[in-house]
Design a protein around this nucleic acid. Sequence first.
DNA 1: AAAAGTATTTTTGTATCCACTTATCCAATC
DNA 2: GATTGGATAAGTGGATACAAAAATACTTTT
Lengths: 229, 229
Amino acid sequence: MSAAFSVEPRAPATAEEEAYRHIQRALRVGRYKSGERLIPEDIAAEIGMSRMPVREAFRRLASEGLVVLRPNRGCVVAGLTLDELNETFEMRSVLEGLAVRLAMPNIGEDEIDDLERLLDRMERAGQSSSSDWVIRHQEFHGSICSLSQRPKLIHQISALHAVVEPYMRIWFDDVDKPLSAREEHATVISALRSGDARHAERVMQDHILGTAPLLAEFVTPNRTMNTGR
Amino acid sequence: MSAAFSVEPRAPATAEEEAYRHIQRALRVGRYKSGERLIPEDIAAEIGMSRMPVREAFRRLASEGLVVLRPNRGCVVAGLTLDELNETFEMRSVLEGLAVRLAMPNIGEDEIDDLERLLDRMERAGQSSSSDWVIRHQEFHGSICSLSQRPKLIHQISALHAVVEPYMRIWFDDVDKPLSAREEHATVISALRSGDARHAERVMQDHILGTAPLLAEFVTPNRTMNTGR
DNA sequence: AAAAGTATTTTTGTATCCACTTATCCAATC
DNA sequence: GATTGGATAAGTGGATACAAAAATACTTTT
Protein backbone atom coordinates (compact mmCIF):
# COMPACT_ATOMS: atom_id res chain seq x y z
CA MET A 1 0.00 0.00 0.00
CA SER A 2 1.40 3.39 -0.93
CA ALA A 3 2.14 5.55 2.06
CA ALA A 4 0.16 8.49 0.73
CA PHE A 5 -1.68 8.92 3.95
CA SER A 6 0.14 8.73 7.24
CA VAL A 7 -0.24 10.37 10.60
CA GLU A 8 3.15 11.19 11.99
CA PRO A 9 3.83 8.93 14.94
CA ARG A 10 6.70 11.06 16.21
CA ALA A 11 7.32 11.33 19.88
CA PRO A 12 5.98 14.53 21.41
CA ALA A 13 8.62 17.26 21.57
CA THR A 14 6.94 19.14 24.38
CA ALA A 15 4.73 18.38 27.33
CA GLU A 16 1.93 20.43 25.79
CA GLU A 17 2.06 18.20 22.73
CA GLU A 18 1.89 15.14 24.89
CA ALA A 19 -1.08 16.47 26.80
CA TYR A 20 -2.80 17.40 23.57
CA ARG A 21 -2.42 13.93 22.11
CA HIS A 22 -3.40 12.27 25.35
CA ILE A 23 -6.66 14.17 25.61
CA GLN A 24 -7.36 13.89 21.92
CA ARG A 25 -6.99 10.14 22.06
CA ALA A 26 -9.10 9.90 25.20
CA LEU A 27 -11.85 11.86 23.46
CA ARG A 28 -11.53 9.65 20.43
CA VAL A 29 -12.06 6.40 22.25
CA GLY A 30 -14.88 7.92 24.22
CA ARG A 31 -13.21 7.95 27.58
CA TYR A 32 -14.52 11.41 28.29
CA LYS A 33 -18.20 11.93 27.64
CA SER A 34 -19.83 15.01 26.25
CA GLY A 35 -20.50 17.58 28.95
CA GLU A 36 -17.94 16.08 31.28
CA ARG A 37 -15.64 18.47 33.05
CA LEU A 38 -11.92 18.08 32.47
CA ILE A 39 -9.86 18.93 35.53
CA PRO A 40 -6.39 20.06 34.52
CA GLU A 41 -4.80 18.86 37.72
CA ASP A 42 -6.11 15.32 37.29
CA ILE A 43 -5.00 15.03 33.69
CA ALA A 44 -1.65 16.55 34.54
CA ALA A 45 -1.14 13.98 37.26
CA GLU A 46 -2.16 11.22 34.88
CA ILE A 47 0.54 12.10 32.39
CA GLY A 48 3.01 13.23 35.01
CA MET A 49 3.30 16.95 34.43
CA SER A 50 1.96 20.17 35.86
CA ARG A 51 -1.32 21.84 34.98
CA MET A 52 0.31 24.38 32.73
CA PRO A 53 0.90 22.38 29.57
CA VAL A 54 -2.52 20.83 29.99
CA ARG A 55 -4.10 24.26 30.03
CA GLU A 56 -2.37 25.10 26.81
CA ALA A 57 -3.52 21.85 25.27
CA PHE A 58 -7.05 22.84 26.29
CA ARG A 59 -6.74 26.00 24.23
CA ARG A 60 -5.79 24.09 21.16
CA LEU A 61 -8.57 21.58 21.64
CA ALA A 62 -11.00 24.42 22.21
CA SER A 63 -10.23 26.13 18.95
CA GLU A 64 -10.79 22.83 17.20
CA GLY A 65 -14.16 22.63 18.86
CA LEU A 66 -13.48 19.49 20.88
CA VAL A 67 -13.84 21.17 24.25
CA VAL A 68 -15.41 24.37 25.47
CA LEU A 69 -13.50 26.79 27.67
CA ARG A 70 -15.22 29.44 29.74
CA PRO A 71 -13.42 31.97 31.92
CA ASN A 72 -13.10 30.83 35.51
CA ARG A 73 -15.28 27.83 34.76
CA GLY A 74 -12.87 25.37 33.35
CA CYS A 75 -12.99 22.99 30.46
CA VAL A 76 -15.84 20.72 29.45
CA VAL A 77 -16.05 18.22 26.64
CA ALA A 78 -18.03 19.80 23.83
CA GLY A 79 -21.35 18.46 22.80
CA LEU A 80 -23.22 19.39 19.66
CA THR A 81 -26.74 20.64 19.39
CA LEU A 82 -28.73 19.37 16.45
CA ASP A 83 -28.08 22.63 14.62
CA GLU A 84 -24.38 22.38 15.26
CA LEU A 85 -24.27 18.78 14.10
CA ASN A 86 -25.95 19.71 10.84
CA GLU A 87 -23.71 22.72 10.44
CA THR A 88 -20.64 20.55 10.88
CA PHE A 89 -21.80 18.16 8.20
CA GLU A 90 -22.63 21.03 5.87
CA MET A 91 -19.11 22.34 6.24
CA ARG A 92 -17.60 18.90 5.81
CA SER A 93 -19.65 18.28 2.70
CA VAL A 94 -18.31 21.27 0.82
CA LEU A 95 -14.76 20.89 2.11
CA GLU A 96 -14.48 17.19 1.40
CA GLY A 97 -16.20 17.77 -1.89
CA LEU A 98 -13.48 20.26 -2.69
CA ALA A 99 -10.84 17.81 -1.56
CA VAL A 100 -12.19 15.13 -3.86
CA ARG A 101 -12.36 17.50 -6.79
CA LEU A 102 -8.77 18.59 -6.26
CA ALA A 103 -7.62 15.04 -5.62
CA MET A 104 -8.99 13.73 -8.88
CA PRO A 105 -5.89 14.41 -11.00
CA ASN A 106 -3.83 12.43 -8.52
CA ILE A 107 -6.05 9.39 -8.51
CA GLY A 108 -5.04 6.40 -10.59
CA GLU A 109 -5.50 2.67 -10.40
CA ASP A 110 -3.09 2.31 -7.48
CA GLU A 111 -4.90 4.86 -5.39
CA ILE A 112 -8.26 3.22 -6.07
CA ASP A 113 -6.80 -0.12 -5.03
CA ASP A 114 -5.53 1.41 -1.80
CA LEU A 115 -8.96 2.82 -1.06
CA GLU A 116 -10.60 -0.53 -1.64
CA ARG A 117 -8.20 -2.11 0.78
CA LEU A 118 -9.09 0.56 3.32
CA LEU A 119 -12.74 -0.17 2.73
CA ASP A 120 -12.14 -3.81 3.55
CA ARG A 121 -10.17 -2.89 6.59
CA MET A 122 -12.99 -0.64 7.70
CA GLU A 123 -15.51 -3.42 7.37
CA ARG A 124 -13.32 -5.85 9.27
CA ALA A 125 -12.79 -3.31 12.03
CA GLY A 126 -16.56 -2.94 12.22
CA GLN A 127 -16.79 -6.55 13.40
CA SER A 128 -14.88 -5.86 16.58
CA SER A 129 -15.58 -2.42 18.01
CA SER A 130 -17.36 0.72 16.93
CA SER A 131 -14.31 2.66 18.04
CA ASP A 132 -12.12 0.80 15.54
CA TRP A 133 -14.68 1.23 12.80
CA VAL A 134 -14.84 4.97 13.31
CA ILE A 135 -11.07 5.20 13.21
CA ARG A 136 -10.91 3.22 9.98
CA HIS A 137 -13.70 5.30 8.57
CA GLN A 138 -11.72 8.43 9.23
CA GLU A 139 -8.73 6.75 7.67
CA PHE A 140 -10.71 6.10 4.51
CA HIS A 141 -11.94 9.67 4.23
CA GLY A 142 -8.57 11.04 5.27
CA SER A 143 -6.86 8.99 2.62
CA ILE A 144 -9.00 10.53 -0.11
CA CYS A 145 -8.47 14.02 1.28
CA SER A 146 -4.74 13.60 1.43
CA LEU A 147 -4.66 12.92 -2.29
CA SER A 148 -5.69 16.53 -2.76
CA GLN A 149 -2.24 17.59 -1.55
CA ARG A 150 -3.75 20.44 0.44
CA PRO A 151 -2.37 20.41 4.00
CA LYS A 152 -4.64 23.06 5.47
CA LEU A 153 -7.71 21.60 3.87
CA ILE A 154 -6.82 18.15 5.14
CA HIS A 155 -6.28 19.46 8.64
CA GLN A 156 -9.54 21.35 8.69
CA ILE A 157 -11.55 18.39 7.48
CA SER A 158 -9.95 16.12 10.01
CA ALA A 159 -10.80 18.59 12.78
CA LEU A 160 -14.44 18.60 11.70
CA HIS A 161 -14.44 14.83 11.57
CA ALA A 162 -13.09 14.62 15.10
CA VAL A 163 -16.00 16.67 16.38
CA VAL A 164 -18.60 14.27 15.04
CA GLU A 165 -16.67 11.08 15.74
CA PRO A 166 -18.27 10.51 19.14
CA TYR A 167 -21.71 10.54 17.56
CA MET A 168 -20.66 8.19 14.79
CA ARG A 169 -19.42 5.82 17.45
CA ILE A 170 -22.70 5.92 19.31
CA TRP A 171 -24.64 5.49 16.08
CA PHE A 172 -22.55 2.54 15.02
CA ASP A 173 -22.99 0.90 18.40
CA ASP A 174 -26.71 1.43 18.31
CA VAL A 175 -27.75 0.30 14.87
CA ASP A 176 -24.73 -1.85 14.07
CA LYS A 177 -25.09 -1.91 10.32
CA PRO A 178 -21.81 -1.88 8.44
CA LEU A 179 -23.91 -3.03 5.46
CA SER A 180 -25.27 0.27 4.24
CA ALA A 181 -22.02 1.97 5.16
CA ARG A 182 -20.04 -0.26 2.86
CA GLU A 183 -22.32 0.38 -0.08
CA GLU A 184 -22.24 4.11 0.55
CA HIS A 185 -18.48 4.23 0.43
CA ALA A 186 -18.30 1.93 -2.56
CA THR A 187 -20.41 4.52 -4.36
CA VAL A 188 -17.81 7.12 -3.58
CA ILE A 189 -15.07 4.92 -4.96
CA SER A 190 -16.88 4.32 -8.21
CA ALA A 191 -17.42 8.06 -8.54
CA LEU A 192 -13.67 8.43 -8.22
CA ARG A 193 -13.25 5.84 -10.93
CA SER A 194 -15.38 7.88 -13.30
CA GLY A 195 -12.63 10.48 -13.54
CA ASP A 196 -15.18 13.27 -13.53
CA ALA A 197 -14.00 15.63 -10.79
CA ARG A 198 -17.23 17.61 -10.50
CA HIS A 199 -19.29 14.46 -10.42
CA ALA A 200 -17.13 12.95 -7.71
CA GLU A 201 -17.39 16.19 -5.75
CA ARG A 202 -21.15 16.00 -5.85
CA VAL A 203 -21.21 12.35 -4.83
CA MET A 204 -18.98 13.05 -1.86
CA GLN A 205 -21.14 16.00 -0.83
CA ASP A 206 -24.24 13.85 -0.98
CA HIS A 207 -22.58 11.03 0.89
CA ILE A 208 -21.65 13.32 3.73
CA LEU A 209 -24.93 15.21 3.88
CA GLY A 210 -26.69 11.86 3.90
CA THR A 211 -24.88 10.87 7.07
CA ALA A 212 -26.07 13.76 9.21
CA PRO A 213 -29.71 12.63 9.61
CA LEU A 214 -28.55 9.24 10.83
CA LEU A 215 -26.81 10.81 13.80
CA ALA A 216 -29.50 13.34 14.57
CA GLU A 217 -31.25 11.15 17.11
CA PHE A 218 -28.14 10.79 19.25
CA VAL A 219 -27.63 14.47 19.73
CA THR A 220 -29.11 16.73 22.38
CA PRO A 221 -32.12 18.31 20.63
CA ASN A 222 -31.12 21.98 20.67
CA ARG A 223 -30.04 24.76 22.93
CA THR A 224 -28.96 22.45 25.73
CA MET A 225 -25.60 21.69 27.27
CA ASN A 226 -23.77 22.50 24.09
CA THR A 227 -21.43 24.50 26.25
CA GLY A 228 -21.38 21.99 29.05
CA ARG A 229 -23.89 22.98 31.68
CA MET B 1 -29.25 49.08 9.32
CA SER B 2 -30.14 45.74 10.78
CA ALA B 3 -27.63 44.56 13.33
CA ALA B 4 -27.34 41.12 11.80
CA PHE B 5 -23.58 41.28 11.81
CA SER B 6 -21.74 42.53 14.82
CA VAL B 7 -18.45 41.77 16.47
CA GLU B 8 -18.89 41.68 20.19
CA PRO B 9 -17.10 44.68 21.73
CA ARG B 10 -17.18 43.26 25.23
CA ALA B 11 -14.32 43.93 27.57
CA PRO B 12 -11.92 41.02 27.87
CA ALA B 13 -12.71 38.77 30.81
CA THR B 14 -9.22 37.38 31.11
CA ALA B 15 -5.70 38.49 30.40
CA GLU B 16 -5.36 35.82 27.74
CA GLU B 17 -8.34 37.27 25.95
CA GLU B 18 -6.82 40.72 26.10
CA ALA B 19 -3.51 39.49 24.74
CA TYR B 20 -5.32 37.62 21.98
CA ARG B 21 -7.21 40.68 20.85
CA HIS B 22 -4.17 42.90 21.14
CA ILE B 23 -2.07 40.72 18.89
CA GLN B 24 -4.92 40.04 16.50
CA ARG B 25 -5.49 43.75 16.04
CA ALA B 26 -1.79 44.41 15.64
CA LEU B 27 -1.64 41.76 12.93
CA ARG B 28 -4.70 43.23 11.29
CA VAL B 29 -3.31 46.72 10.94
CA GLY B 30 0.00 45.34 9.79
CA ARG B 31 2.04 46.32 12.79
CA TYR B 32 3.77 42.95 12.78
CA LYS B 33 5.10 41.84 9.45
CA SER B 34 5.17 38.33 8.09
CA GLY B 35 8.16 36.38 9.35
CA GLU B 36 8.67 38.68 12.31
CA ARG B 37 9.34 37.07 15.63
CA LEU B 38 6.95 37.80 18.48
CA ILE B 39 8.65 37.89 21.86
CA PRO B 40 6.19 37.06 24.62
CA GLU B 41 8.00 39.16 27.18
CA ASP B 42 7.82 42.30 25.04
CA ILE B 43 4.15 41.91 24.26
CA ALA B 44 3.39 41.09 27.88
CA ALA B 45 5.15 44.25 28.99
CA GLU B 46 3.25 46.25 26.38
CA ILE B 47 -0.13 45.20 27.75
CA GLY B 48 1.04 45.01 31.33
CA MET B 49 0.86 41.34 32.15
CA SER B 50 3.18 38.35 32.40
CA ARG B 51 4.29 36.11 29.56
CA MET B 52 1.94 33.32 30.48
CA PRO B 53 -1.35 34.65 29.07
CA VAL B 54 0.51 35.82 25.98
CA ARG B 55 1.81 32.30 25.44
CA GLU B 56 -1.70 30.97 25.60
CA ALA B 57 -2.89 33.60 23.15
CA PHE B 58 -0.12 32.43 20.82
CA ARG B 59 -1.62 28.95 20.82
CA ARG B 60 -4.99 30.24 19.78
CA LEU B 61 -3.51 32.41 17.06
CA ALA B 62 -1.42 29.47 15.89
CA SER B 63 -4.38 27.19 15.42
CA GLU B 64 -6.04 29.91 13.39
CA GLY B 65 -2.97 30.04 11.22
CA LEU B 66 -2.00 33.62 12.03
CA VAL B 67 1.29 32.71 13.67
CA VAL B 68 3.56 29.70 13.61
CA LEU B 69 4.79 28.09 16.80
CA ARG B 70 7.79 25.80 16.84
CA PRO B 71 9.13 24.08 19.95
CA ASN B 72 11.90 26.07 21.58
CA ARG B 73 11.92 28.50 18.69
CA GLY B 74 9.17 30.84 19.63
CA CYS B 75 6.42 32.47 17.69
CA VAL B 76 6.68 34.08 14.28
CA VAL B 77 4.04 35.83 12.22
CA ALA B 78 2.82 33.39 9.59
CA GLY B 79 3.42 34.04 5.95
CA LEU B 80 1.79 32.16 3.12
CA THR B 81 3.49 30.42 0.26
CA LEU B 82 1.81 30.69 -3.09
CA ASP B 83 0.36 27.22 -2.65
CA GLU B 84 -0.98 28.09 0.75
CA LEU B 85 -2.51 31.30 -0.53
CA ASN B 86 -4.31 29.44 -3.27
CA GLU B 87 -5.40 26.77 -0.85
CA THR B 88 -6.85 29.34 1.48
CA PHE B 89 -8.88 30.87 -1.31
CA GLU B 90 -10.06 27.47 -2.45
CA MET B 91 -11.34 26.78 1.04
CA ARG B 92 -12.92 30.18 1.33
CA SER B 93 -14.63 29.79 -2.01
CA VAL B 94 -16.52 26.65 -1.06
CA LEU B 95 -17.25 27.79 2.49
CA GLU B 96 -18.49 31.24 1.54
CA GLY B 97 -20.35 29.68 -1.33
CA LEU B 98 -22.08 27.45 1.19
CA ALA B 99 -22.77 30.44 3.42
CA VAL B 100 -24.42 32.31 0.56
CA ARG B 101 -26.51 29.31 -0.41
CA LEU B 102 -27.71 28.87 3.17
CA ALA B 103 -28.22 32.59 3.62
CA MET B 104 -30.51 32.93 0.63
CA PRO B 105 -33.78 32.18 2.45
CA ASN B 106 -32.96 34.95 4.91
CA ILE B 107 -32.26 37.59 2.32
CA GLY B 108 -34.93 40.12 1.50
CA GLU B 109 -35.04 43.70 0.33
CA ASP B 110 -33.82 45.04 3.67
CA GLU B 111 -30.77 42.83 3.70
CA ILE B 112 -29.89 43.79 0.13
CA ASP B 113 -30.17 47.44 1.08
CA ASP B 114 -27.87 46.88 4.02
CA LEU B 115 -25.32 45.24 1.78
CA GLU B 116 -25.42 48.11 -0.67
CA ARG B 117 -24.79 50.53 2.15
CA LEU B 118 -21.83 48.42 3.20
CA LEU B 119 -20.56 48.47 -0.36
CA ASP B 120 -20.66 52.27 -0.31
CA ARG B 121 -18.93 52.35 3.00
CA MET B 122 -16.27 50.06 1.63
CA GLU B 123 -15.65 52.32 -1.31
CA ARG B 124 -15.45 55.41 0.87
CA ALA B 125 -13.01 53.66 3.21
CA GLY B 126 -10.92 52.84 0.16
CA GLN B 127 -10.27 56.55 -0.32
CA SER B 128 -8.43 56.89 2.95
CA SER B 129 -6.41 53.80 3.83
CA SER B 130 -5.99 50.28 2.55
CA SER B 131 -6.32 49.09 6.11
CA ASP B 132 -9.81 50.60 6.39
CA TRP B 133 -10.81 49.21 3.02
CA VAL B 134 -9.78 45.69 3.99
CA ILE B 135 -11.73 45.96 7.22
CA ARG B 136 -14.84 47.15 5.38
CA HIS B 137 -14.36 44.45 2.82
CA GLN B 138 -14.37 41.85 5.55
CA GLU B 139 -17.44 43.53 6.99
CA PHE B 140 -19.22 43.14 3.66
CA HIS B 141 -18.37 39.47 3.30
CA GLY B 142 -19.00 38.85 6.98
CA SER B 143 -22.40 40.44 6.72
CA ILE B 144 -23.44 38.04 3.99
CA CYS B 145 -22.05 35.06 5.88
CA SER B 146 -23.86 36.01 9.07
CA LEU B 147 -27.16 35.82 7.22
CA SER B 148 -26.55 32.07 6.95
CA GLN B 149 -27.11 31.81 10.70
CA ARG B 150 -24.27 29.30 11.00
CA PRO B 151 -21.93 30.34 13.84
CA LYS B 152 -19.18 27.83 13.20
CA LEU B 153 -19.20 28.46 9.49
CA ILE B 154 -19.02 32.19 10.06
CA HIS B 155 -16.13 31.82 12.45
CA GLN B 156 -14.19 29.57 10.13
CA ILE B 157 -14.60 31.87 7.17
CA SER B 158 -13.55 34.86 9.21
CA ALA B 159 -10.43 33.00 10.32
CA LEU B 160 -9.52 32.25 6.73
CA HIS B 161 -10.13 35.84 5.81
CA ALA B 162 -7.81 37.04 8.57
CA VAL B 163 -4.99 34.98 7.13
CA VAL B 164 -5.15 36.64 3.73
CA GLU B 165 -5.96 40.14 4.98
CA PRO B 166 -2.32 41.25 5.06
CA TYR B 167 -1.95 40.40 1.39
CA MET B 168 -5.16 42.16 0.46
CA ARG B 169 -3.83 45.23 2.21
CA ILE B 170 -0.58 45.13 0.29
CA TRP B 171 -2.42 44.53 -2.97
CA PHE B 172 -4.78 47.41 -2.36
CA ASP B 173 -1.90 49.71 -1.52
CA ASP B 174 -0.04 48.70 -4.63
CA VAL B 175 -2.62 48.85 -7.37
CA ASP B 176 -5.12 51.16 -5.65
CA LYS B 177 -8.13 50.31 -7.72
CA PRO B 178 -11.39 50.27 -5.81
CA LEU B 179 -13.02 50.40 -9.26
CA SER B 180 -12.92 46.76 -10.24
CA ALA B 181 -13.54 45.74 -6.65
CA ARG B 182 -16.81 47.63 -6.54
CA GLU B 183 -18.08 46.02 -9.72
CA GLU B 184 -17.07 42.58 -8.51
CA HIS B 185 -19.05 42.95 -5.33
CA ALA B 186 -22.00 44.49 -7.09
CA THR B 187 -22.14 41.30 -9.14
CA VAL B 188 -22.42 39.31 -5.95
CA ILE B 189 -25.28 41.50 -4.77
CA SER B 190 -27.22 41.07 -7.97
CA ALA B 191 -26.72 37.33 -7.72
CA LEU B 192 -28.29 37.55 -4.28
CA ARG B 193 -31.18 39.48 -5.79
CA SER B 194 -31.85 36.67 -8.24
CA GLY B 195 -33.08 34.48 -5.41
CA ASP B 196 -31.40 31.44 -6.93
CA ALA B 197 -29.34 29.99 -4.10
CA ARG B 198 -27.22 27.69 -6.27
CA HIS B 199 -26.53 30.48 -8.72
CA ALA B 200 -25.49 32.86 -5.95
CA GLU B 201 -23.28 30.14 -4.50
CA ARG B 202 -21.49 29.79 -7.82
CA VAL B 203 -21.08 33.54 -8.22
CA MET B 204 -19.58 33.86 -4.79
CA GLN B 205 -17.21 30.96 -5.47
CA ASP B 206 -16.06 32.59 -8.67
CA HIS B 207 -15.68 35.97 -7.02
CA ILE B 208 -13.41 34.53 -4.37
CA LEU B 209 -11.39 32.31 -6.67
CA GLY B 210 -10.92 35.31 -8.93
CA THR B 211 -9.27 37.23 -6.13
CA ALA B 212 -6.46 34.78 -5.49
CA PRO B 213 -4.44 35.47 -8.67
CA LEU B 214 -4.44 39.18 -7.90
CA LEU B 215 -2.57 38.60 -4.66
CA ALA B 216 -0.21 35.97 -6.03
CA GLU B 217 2.53 38.43 -6.85
CA PHE B 218 2.76 39.70 -3.28
CA VAL B 219 3.40 36.33 -1.76
CA THR B 220 6.71 34.58 -1.28
CA PRO B 221 6.94 32.23 -4.30
CA ASN B 222 6.97 28.84 -2.60
CA ARG B 223 8.72 26.82 0.02
CA THR B 224 10.27 29.82 1.73
CA MET B 225 9.81 31.31 5.15
CA ASN B 226 6.29 30.05 5.41
CA THR B 227 7.24 28.89 8.85
CA GLY B 228 9.25 31.95 9.70
CA ARG B 229 12.85 31.57 8.65
C1' DA C 1 -38.74 23.19 56.26
C1' DA C 2 -37.31 26.41 52.60
C1' DA C 3 -34.59 30.29 51.49
C1' DA C 4 -31.03 33.25 51.92
C1' DG C 5 -26.84 34.45 53.39
C1' DT C 6 -22.12 33.19 55.00
C1' DA C 7 -18.04 30.52 55.56
C1' DT C 8 -15.11 26.98 53.60
C1' DT C 9 -13.14 24.44 50.03
C1' DT C 10 -11.96 23.79 45.38
C1' DT C 11 -10.41 25.37 41.13
C1' DT C 12 -8.96 28.70 38.02
C1' DG C 13 -5.90 32.55 36.33
C1' DT C 14 -1.58 34.76 36.54
C1' DA C 15 3.14 35.73 38.14
C1' DT C 16 7.55 34.22 39.19
C1' DC C 17 11.24 31.03 39.14
C1' DC C 18 14.39 27.50 37.32
C1' DA C 19 16.29 24.34 33.90
C1' DC C 20 17.35 23.64 29.41
C1' DT C 21 17.50 24.82 24.53
C1' DT C 22 18.78 27.91 20.95
C1' DA C 23 21.03 31.94 19.19
C1' DT C 24 24.91 35.18 19.15
C1' DC C 25 29.39 36.58 19.34
C1' DC C 26 34.20 36.15 19.53
C1' DA C 27 38.40 33.86 19.09
C1' DA C 28 41.31 30.26 17.46
C1' DT C 29 42.56 27.47 13.61
C1' DC C 30 43.27 26.16 8.98
C1' DG D 1 39.82 35.40 5.17
C1' DA D 2 36.61 31.94 5.96
C1' DT D 3 35.28 28.36 9.04
C1' DT D 4 34.80 26.02 13.20
C1' DG D 5 34.48 25.75 18.21
C1' DG D 6 33.14 27.35 22.38
C1' DA D 7 31.68 30.83 25.79
C1' DT D 8 27.95 33.83 26.78
C1' DA D 9 23.57 35.77 26.32
C1' DA D 10 18.80 35.42 25.18
C1' DG D 11 14.61 32.97 25.13
C1' DT D 12 11.55 29.08 25.75
C1' DG D 13 9.07 25.38 28.31
C1' DG D 14 7.48 23.90 32.46
C1' DA D 15 6.73 23.86 37.70
C1' DT D 16 5.49 26.08 41.64
C1' DA D 17 3.37 29.73 44.31
C1' DC D 18 -0.18 32.88 45.17
C1' DA D 19 -4.42 35.55 44.52
C1' DA D 20 -9.06 35.74 42.84
C1' DA D 21 -13.13 33.57 41.54
C1' DA D 22 -16.59 29.91 41.69
C1' DA D 23 -18.62 25.96 43.77
C1' DT D 24 -19.97 23.78 47.90
C1' DA D 25 -21.33 23.10 52.54
C1' DC D 26 -23.19 25.03 56.37
C1' DT D 27 -25.69 28.13 59.06
C1' DT D 28 -29.16 31.18 60.28
C1' DT D 29 -33.47 33.16 59.67
C1' DT D 30 -38.12 33.28 58.77
